[in-house]
Design a protein around this nucleic acid. Structure first.
Lengths: 215, 215
DNA sequence: AGCTTCCGTGATACCCTCTAACCAACACCT
DNA sequence: AGGTGTTGGTTAGAGGGTATCACGGAAGCT
């Protein structure tokens, strides 16, 4: 028996507890939103008393940061997987939508109203850029051969540092920004419940936005 | 001396205190967001002790509801005034943007991530519809004479109960939904700080979205 | 076995919302 | 003018939250 795992039992226990905490946290978030997340309630729910959790997370913010990181990671992987299996831009857009609808609070944790003081750590923005790259790639591929230069594209030609050296033409960057903001516009209003009461199907609106974007 | 004011001194004092509370609440919201709003802190800041405020607001939710109502009212009036002075659809869109940028947290209070338990009361949805009507009017006016029927428009032709008897053609309703979601997409991502770090000008993106919408 | 490191606990300080009981001031009415 | 009721303010306190601390005990390591 080779001891395949270099991790100590303590480490394994630790990571396992952290995982269970985060699992409970996701349950809480799914039902009551991120702002209602309570370390105390999680601890009691796990059968231990309040302050114990501070052995695993420095504070509430660190737990939330970890949840954000996990959500970004999951979204990036989901989009990457879809892209690998041949999904085009429309496919990625629909993948994003199903991912958002599967757990609205998770989407809103990433792209909803931020806590004013909170500053995202370095690595989460890195994953966020990874997501952007996947989408920009698809945008570049979906771009019609002769796309007229829009004012936005010419503006982006001079302000593309955020694309981090991505070789896509400015028109692709412009398409990405349009795509991102439009999809988010539909999704966030839908998830926030601003369409409830209106009887129309948000999916039709989503597809409409997508169609005009690719047409 | 005619006693011009039929309100009793007590009533006047009451409304004046309520107004001051809401003013302080807006200050808190502007700096720390709606979730960090504290009745206690407001009370102390006004020189009285905690529970006193419960004479004026039944609970925290009622205060927030009142803030939401005030914000909706202000936005509706602002858009209505702009419309009265001859602003077209693009003008209304820019009015919305400046209104949102003037106080980001106020915009996010209306259109950002909702508090999961919270249900908006009847009259706020009424003001929200008033806003919609103003925009739908402008959409109907901005509609090119021969607009091809989109799948969204045909869908809306059968699902227009939310338009509350507005006589606009379904194409105008489709335009309204596109407008709303696109502007909100740009605004909410901008206000939530998701463009910080990227160096481009969000105003250019906003104008680009607006242009493609009206072109 | 002994030592060390780590985990969970209760106690505590300090926030918050919200209720209850009490007190003071004002308005009103006879 | 003086009693009376409404109204606005107070403190005390229940209940829940974050977070720190000191302590006891268990688990791992040598």
């Amino acid at each position: 028996m080779a001891k395949s795992d270099p991790t100590t039992p303590r480490e394994r226990y630790r990571t396992q507890v952290r995982a269970e905490v985060m699992e409970r946290a996701w349950e809480q978030i799914a039902t009551a939103g991120a702002s209602a997340l309570s370390l105390n309630a999680i601890a009691k729910h796990m059968g231990m008393s309040g302050p114990a959790l501070y052995r695993y997370f420095a504070n509430r913010d660190e737990l939330i940061t970890e949840l954000v990181r996990e959500a970004y990671r999951d979204l990036a992987d989901t989009l990457h997987a879809a892209s690998e299996t041949g999904a085009d831009l429309a496919g990625l857009a629909r993948t994003l939508r199903t991912w958002a609808l599967a757990d609205p609070q998770r989407y809103l944790l990433l792209y909803g109203t931020p806590v004013p003081g909170y500053q995202a750590p370095e690595d989460t923005t890195a994953i966020s850029q990874e997501i952007a790259v996947t989408l920009i790639d698809a945008c570049a591929a979906a771009l019609p051969p002769a796309t007229p230069a829009s004012p936005l594209a010419t503006h982006l030609a001079d302000h593309r540092t955020w694309a981090a050296g991505h070789p896509a033409p400015p028109e692709a960057l412009a398409l990405f920004l349009s795509l991102w903001t439009r999809l988010h516009g539909v999704l966030s209003l839908e998830l926030a419940g601003h369409f409830t009461g209106m009887q129309f199907d948000a999916a039709v609106l989503f597809e409409s936005e997508l169609a005009t974007l690719l047409g």
